[in-house]
Design a protein around this nucleic acid. Structure first.
Length: 930
RNA sequence: GCUCGAGUGGUGGAAUUGGUAGACACGUUGGACUUAAAAUCCAAUGAGCAUCGCGCUCGUGCGGGUUCAAGUCCCGCCUCGAGUACCA
């Protein structure tokens, strides 16, 4: 019979499930370890081989940590809200809940077949009211919080109300929208509505009229990270800017803490870099320019990272949306300015981005004063200045900013050089091809800073403008507040209602606010979100409830916390659970979440941390991005105009068209011709030009997709080879972090390895052949070398080399005809994290009645690895010429003598002088001759 | 444009601290076993040269450099991938 993986895998999957082998509870006697996978969105097409890659790695690590005595939390759940189920509902009327449930069942079935050690008693689903109750609860926490810059953390709005009643907003250093000063007396005289409006400007979850990314095709707004190159991430539909009243999260309050927190995280550098870029901190100064002439009372504030170049500012540019545009535009320019503003407004984001090289703008007719030169400079508007960054206005320094340079050239505006490269002389800017943007250089034509290096001039200018009261050093961030409303059905309802036009939070005992049934999943005729279709969508008192729903990232922002205490009915999680499990020790998932989920989660966690609800400031200590598995598409080559197909090697002889062919019809690039003929009716009578009697297919590495016929789902492979083979093979494919093409060609090798391993323990009739005979030195060496290698490979997440270490060991033990318990029992434990089913079976057959998961991981003993001799590679001038076995403890000078007097050395020494001998003990001997 | 990452046999990849380049596996070729197939086992397999079983030369994207020694470090390029994009 041999290795009967189907029987074995079924048996152990049932055993684990029945015995709740992986159920985990708080155990103060054991150290905790929390291994988390990014939970999947259960899509209709089920798992393909790319999904389990990260799960297999995390499962190996979890099982390893259990063997090492840790209490391992390794949960799984579903990110169950999402667009596809909703779109399916719109098309078919099927409630998204039904579609989602069906997909989850399919996912679960597929996951179970791979033999993961998840504690399913902790499963969470973001769409489950028992879960989203806590998403809504957290939203209320955000609504009831504001950010105090003095303490650098979130505090309660209730405390803010007390402060306002006693002090007004004097001396308050909060992150907020623009607020005028008010006194305690004024505050106390305000109506409730006025007070609520003011508080809204401080809340961490707030509603406001903001410029949002509106996607007409999807009928919803999107957060910045959901827009890629002016198109929606989902579906690739055009996105436009639109002013709408929406919920947002004041994540910008945490910009600096989100940036600083990265330093101590064990995350890939590339991912940290992406987050740093996304946060986009830049240091500079804000400077106030007074308007010249009739408008002399007005002022324009700009942000610049180069205050040193202030003397070179020869004009100003405002974003077309800037609030002063109307006010400052002169009568004779009004028409042109209005036309430009209208034109700019109607340009899609995509157009604006792709037409970056086209310079456009319009003079307003107004002038400002350069505060340092007192020269009048013209004020223009142009859409290369963005309303959303800095102050939406810039001082243009065409000599030292390439965009300003292009603009000045186009509109014939003056250019002044104020920075010169060290040691170079001033040149005529009218002859330049480009501006000099570098900070390396010395100031010229710049009044009191002339002669200073630019870096020093930046500091000196900031000091001067602060003294003059016309500006100050400031820091700007690119990060925007997260827009949190979606005009969709399938998402968490906001626990909010409206009274007198202002939103209020529901009381906690009203949670969860369950998603209502609706007749239509589309927006209403009036253009309101789908929830407006619900009957009676009001509070008990009759106040209307919020009709927007939360975005996809709401449910995923704090799910790792719920896993700590998933069945708690009265709290999100208990203090005890949080203090025990603390944070995620290892988080594995894709890097597509760098600017989304991983920033929102960190923010979410920090707010809860500030409120004393969680004990760690950062949620994910170590993070690994598993690479994507790309598809490997196969092609057949049809001779144009015929139904004749030519084999890969001969395709150049004919004009051909390459067609994707289903990868299930191809094995080792050889086409199953009959299968192909039956694949589609049009190929029934196809003819073939073969090479060596075979039809060889071409291949290409592409994204896995249905249309390319290259999707590999794991079920068929498990059917054919078993889960243990799949697990080993996915790991053997290459380094975890690397993108790699899926190619089943190599899977046979891993399958052969497991069968070979089986034969070490069992004979042809499946009788155990293990003996209690004492192991030999060679056998012990092979085992202990492997223990050492496999342990260190798991610890550094090098799973592919771990698999190869197993193969080497099994090859060696087979050669030694080893069948000794002393060797093969520990070996089974070593393998258990990678191939748990076969290891359990062997373990049981060896007479153990407990699951192998309870066994202690073997520790290698260096004594068995000691060698008496080392085979030195002997090099001459760095080129290896021969090998020489010498005792390991031989003295350096003896090694030199031995090498020089070796028989093979003579030929290389003949007629040469030995200039130098390098001996690195137990490494290498290099003889330099000349 | 900017930021980050990667380029090693026919293929996936290994080489952890600068120290034998190509581990392990696939594929291919030849052989054993078998009526045959599957399975299994053995041998060869970077390229080139060779008085083809002594051996030599070249070889980790390209060009330089440091070093006794470079896939690994430094400088300059090329190609591919990812992120981001008028961020002042």
């Amino acid at each position: 019979m041999g290795y009967d993986f189907q029987r074995i895998e079924k048996k152990w999957q049932e055993y684990w499930s029945k015995n709740q082998t992986f159920k985990v509870c708080i155990d103060q006697n054991k150290p905790k370890y929390y291994v988390l996978d990014m939970f999947p969105y259960p899509s209709g097409s089920g798992l393909h081989v790319g999904h389990p890659l990260g799960y297999i790695a995390s499962d190996i690590y979890s099982r390893f940590k259990r063997h090492k005595g840790f209490n391992v939390l390794h949960p799984m759940g579903y990110d169950a809200y999402g667009l596809p189920a909703e779109q399916y509902a719109i098309q078919t009327g099927t409630h998204p809940e039904i579609t989602t449930e069906k997909n989850i069942l399919r996912y679960r079935e597929q996951l179970d077949k791979i033999g993961f050690s998840f504690d399913w008693s902790r499963e969470v689903r973001t769409s489950d009211p028992k879960y989203y109750k806590w998403t809504q609860w957290t939203f209320i926490q955000l609504f009831e919080s504001w950010f105090n810059n003095d303490t650098n953390k979130a505090e309660r709005v209730s405390d803010l109300v007390v402060y306002f009643a006693n002090n007004g907003n004097k001396n308050l250093n909060a992150v907020c929208d623009e607020v005028d000063d008010f006194t305690d007396a004024e505050w106390n005289s305000y109506t409730e509505r006025q007070q609520q409006e003011l508080l809204m400007k401080y809340r961490l979850a707030f509603i406001s009229e903001t410029m949002v990314n509106w996607c007409p095709e999807l009928g919803t707004v999107l957060a910045n990270d959901e827009v890629k190159e002016g198109l929606s991430e989902r579906g690739g539909h055009p996105v436009e800017k639109k002013l709408m009243k929406q919920w947002s999260l004041r994540i910008t309050a945490y910009s600096q803490r989100l940036l600083d927190g990265l330093d101590n995280l064990d995350w890939p550098d590339s991912l940290k870099e992406m987050q740093r870029n996304w946060i986009g901190r830049s240091e500079g100064a804000s400077v106030i320019f007074n308007l010249a002439g009739n408008n002399s009372k007005g002022e324009i504030e700009v942000f610049t990272t180069r205050p040193d170049t202030l003397f070179g500012a020869t004009f100003m540019v405002l974003a077309p949306e800037h609030e002063l545009v109307d006010e400052i535009t002169t009568a004779d320019q009004k028409e042109d300015v209005d036309n430009y503003v209208t034109w700019a407004k109607n340009r899609s984001e995509r157009e604006r981005m792709t037409e970056v090289k086209n310079v456009s703008g319009q003079f307003t007719g107004a002038y400002a004063m350069n505060p340092l030169t007192n020269e009048e400079i013209p004020i223009w508007i142009a859409d290369y200045v963005l309303s959303g960054y800095g102050t939406g206005a810039i001082m243009a320094v065409p000599g030292h900013d390439s965009r300003d340079f292009a603009f000045a050239r186009h509109f014939n505006l003056p250019i002044i050089q104020v920075v010169v490269k060290e040691g170079e002389a001033e040149t005529d800017p009218t002859e330049w091809d480009d501006s000099y943007d570098s900070k390396e250089g010395v100031m010229i034509n710049s009044g009191f800073i002339t002669g200073m290096p630019a870096a020093e001039a930046i500091k000196a200018t900031i000091t001067r403008i602060e003294e003059m009261g016309i500006g100050k050093g400031t820091i700007n961030y690119r990060l925007r507040d997260a827009i949190f409303s979606r005009q969709r059905y399938w998402g968490e309802p906001f626990p909010m209602y409206y009274k007198d036009g202002m939103p209020y939070a529901l009381s906690y005992d009203k949670l969860p606010l369950e998603l209502p049934k609706v007749d239509s999943y589309l927006p209403t005729k009036e253009g309101n979100p789908p929830l407006a279709n619900a009957n009676n969508w009001v509070t008990e008192e009759g106040y209307p409830l919020e009709t927007n729903t939360m975005p996809g990232f709401a449910g995923s922002s704090g799910y790792y916390l719920r896993y700590m205490d998933p069945n708690n009915e009265s709290e999100y999680f208990s203090r005890e659970a949080n203090e025990y499990w603390k944070d995620v020790d290892l988080y594995i998932g894709g890097d597509e979440h760098a600017a989304g989920h991983l920033i929102y989660s960190r923010f979410w966690n920090k707010v809860l941390f500030d409120m004393g609800l969680v004990c760690e400031d950062e949620p994910f200590k170590k993070l690994i991005n598993q690479g994507k598995i790309q598809g490997r598409s196969s092609f057949v080559y049809r001779i144009q105009g015929t139904n004749k197909f030519v084999s890969y090697g001969l395709r150049k002889d004919h004009p051909t068209t390459a067609l994707h062919v289903d990868i299930d019809l191809v094995s080792n690039d050889i086409l199953d011709i009959d299968g192909f003929k039956n694949w589609r009716s049009e190929f029934n009578d196809a003819e073939f030009v073969l090479e060596d009697g075979k039809y060889i297919c071409g291949y290409e590495v592409e994204k896995m997709s249905k249309s390319k016929h290259n999707v590999q789902n794991p079920d068929a492979l498990i059917e054919k080879y078993g889960a243990d083979t799949l697990r080993l093979y996915e790991m053997f494919l290459g380094p975890l972090e690397q993108d790699k093409p899926w190619d089943t060609n190599g899977i046979e090798g891993v399958f052969r390895f497991l069968r070979k391993l089986w034969r070490l323990y069992f004979d042809d009739t499946d009788e155990l052949i293990i003996t209690d005979e004492k192991a030999s030195a060679d056998e012990l060496k092979s085992l202990h070398k492997t223990i050492k290698k496999v342990t260190s490979d798991i610890e550094r997440f090098s799973f592919n080399t771990g698999v190869s270490a197993f193969m080497i060991c099994v090859n060696e033990l087979s050669d030694l005809k080893c069948s000794k318990r002393e060797i093969l029992e520990p070996f089974a434990i070593l393998l258990a994290p990678y191939a748990p089913h076969i290891s359990e079976e062997i373990w049981q057959k060896l007479g153990n009645d407990q699951s192998i998961t309870t066994a202690e991981f073997p520790i290698h003993n260096d004594e068995f690895l000691v060698e008496n001799t080392f085979e030195y590679p002997v090099s001459f001038n760095g080129k290896m010429r021969f090998k020489l076995a010498l005792p390991v403890n031989m003295a350096k000078n003896e090694i030199e003598d031995a090498a020089l007097s070796a028989e093979e050395a003579a030929k290389w020494l003949e007629g040469k002088t030995v200039r130098k001998i390098i001996v690195v003990p137990n490494r290498i001997i290099n003889i330099v001759v000349g």
